[in-house]
Design a binder for these strands. Structure first.
Lengths: 350, 350
DNA sequence: GTGAAAGCGCTAACAA
DNA sequence: TTGTTAGCGCTTTCAC
């Protein structure tokens, strides 16, 4: 229902057709109150008829605002990032902002080139960083763009941050396990897996070690494994942990830094002929849907909500709001059926 | 290491500092071969020193190209979409294009408003649509933007498409199952779950029913269940299927339209005291990592590759290339340990 | 309530 | 190899 434009429709042609000026058309399209209602209707009608598509580039150039927010993720295919991304997206959509995804693409990715300020090319008005720890150079580069930024996940020095307190989380987990009588507890975490400088794994591991130490329990070196933050990695770690052929002792509980790894450990336990939680208790962190179905005990956090909070915060700052501090997101223990009391082998001295 | 600009750095200031003209600076920044190497170095050095950040809006306005591709997903947190998105992203990054994510946001999302041509605002040069079937109006709206488009997943009339042939996939699955002697096979698929018009579920279901029919096997209505394309949904469907209290018969095999659902069915089987594949065989579609670890038989496809192919195709078209037809992506049967021969109850007449 | 004109930061002929 | 001159399509004073 339109005449095909010789070149791409502009407000100029709407102006011509309606006999109005470009300025009025521009105002009408944006529904400004200084324009007569009848004019607004007329302009919108014609715009529709003509198949007008606004140019964000032109508007952006004129106003200096792109109405877009960038989201930087270390890798895309991780439960937490996907969920958080969804939260950010939902909030941006509400505000009429577009979302530009910057995926560093893991170890194979070109991280070096990734954080150059030029990468952003002023395409976005603000940035949400997921679980990234930046080095000085990167920080400086980003700072140059003068964009509001906020990070989700690991606390980043000098940047506002939304996320759970990972040290507390680890402490709560240790509490739960020790409360059930466990003293032989292993930890399955992850390295800086993707060369991505993710801080969270370290915080959780340290939190775990410290919380255990606070109870006078020393951590066995060989009970701290790398589960690569994945289901497969968890299964591998579990297999190593439960391998009796080595003649080594087996922990009575395993605390995993993510639900995906915990699920893998549960699988490994079953394969090793161990009962969960009869022989070994397993718990994770996250609140993954799979864990819910599988009955996994976990410390649940809400990445979608974190994404929303982060998005709202940048948006506010973009709109000239002040950058107030953000409070930590709540995380809560969800006890399900993969943790239970330690099996009594040596009945306590009566 | 820069003087803070009174306003945001532009190539003008670089021109002033170097004593060159804006055009030369522009050319140098883009490394055009008509510029003296020494000039290029000089310009780049000064740009760095000044903390210059290019403006994509200005460049976009001038050239008419945004160097960005839009990706439209029905929902973000689904294995297939995430993987495909990753593939698209990888290819775009290679080409120096940005990725703008348009998430329709499921049933709660504002799909009606989502597909208005104005949504795109010419922010992107092309579009990759994930598993979407568009109605006439939507097609027309998008057509108006005159952007190259390609869809991944369901075949969409009038649009180029990359993806597996779902009917073939269903046939291969039925082949495998029937080859093992199964005749009582159930199907766990999904509705147009998110009100998103995803075509794939229907194709797979019809393919299943037809393939079975071709072998003279009638499909029981109550063995076609909705697994909502999720782990939880699969578990629910499995629970219903294996519920003996109803006194109904139990299928000897279950074919699921996704690995996530299949995993749920396996869980349900185990909970119902059934052995897999001893009592019941289960298989899925996808090639999900979890399935690999869990030993799930599946028809694997490669969404990352599909994403890459799709991205390359739009990019080519954006660059003026012709829109040749795309060949279907391969999918292959991966036999693991959740499918096996049907248990002999009624030994065949000798 | 509307119009005229300047300009956002860059690229692209066309000259030199 | 570099400079000059026009815009790209929109927003925004400032007039009317």
């Amino acid at each position: 229902m339109t005449g095909l434009p010789g070149r791409s429709m502009g407000i100029q042609e709407i102006a011509t057709v309606t006999g109005l000026s470009k300025s009025t058309v521009s105002r009408a399209l944006r529904g400004m109150s200084t324009v007569a209602d009848t004019t607004i209707d007329e302009v919108r009608r014609v715009a529709d008829e003509l198949g007008y598509v606004p140019s964000s580039a032109a508007a952006g150039l004129a106003t200096g605002r792109q109405r877009a927010i960038g989201v930087v993720v270390p890798v895309i295919d991780r439960w937490f990032y996907v969920k958080a991304l969804g939260g950010v997206d939902a909030e941006l959509r509400r505000a009429g902002y577009d979302l530009v995804l910057y995926n560093l693409g893991g170890p194979g990715g070109d991280r070096d080139r990734a954080f150059r300020r030029s990468m952003l090319r002023h395409r976005v008005d603000g940035l949400v960083l997921l679980s990234l720890v930046l080095d000085e150079t990167e920080r400086a580069e980003l700072e140059l763009t003068r964009h509001p930024m906020i990070v989700i996940g690991g606390p980043a020095p000098g940047l506002r941050n939304v996320g759970v307190d990972d040290v507390v989380v680890a402490a709560v987990a240790v509490d739960h396990l020790c409360g059930l009588g466990h003293r032989d507890v292993a930890y399955v975490g992850g390295q800086d897996e993707a060369g991505m400088n993710v801080a969270v794994p370290w915080l959780r591991r340290d939190g775990f070690v410290d919380a255990l130490a606070a109870r006078g329990i020393a951590v066995r070196e060989d009970w701290i494994l790398d589960g690569r933050f994945s289901f497969a990695g968890g299964a591998d770690a579990g297999a190593a942990l439960f391998d009796r052929t080595r003649g080594a002792a087996i922990p009575t509980a395993v605390f995993c830094a993510s639900d995906e790894m915990a699920l893998g450990v549960v699988l490994a336990a079953r394969r090793a002929g161990l009962e969960v939680p009869g022989d070994v208790s397993v718990m994770g962190i996250d609140g993954h849907e799979y864990g819910e179905v599988a009955g996994l005990t976990t410390i649940a956090q809400d990445p979608v909500a974190q994404g929303r909070v982060a998005a709202r915060a940048v948006l506010e700052e973009v709109d000239g709001g002040v950058a107030g501090p953000l409070s930590a997101s709540p995380a809560h223990l969800v006890v399900r059926s993969t943790t239970g009391p330690v099996r009594l082998q040596d009945p306590p001295a009566a």
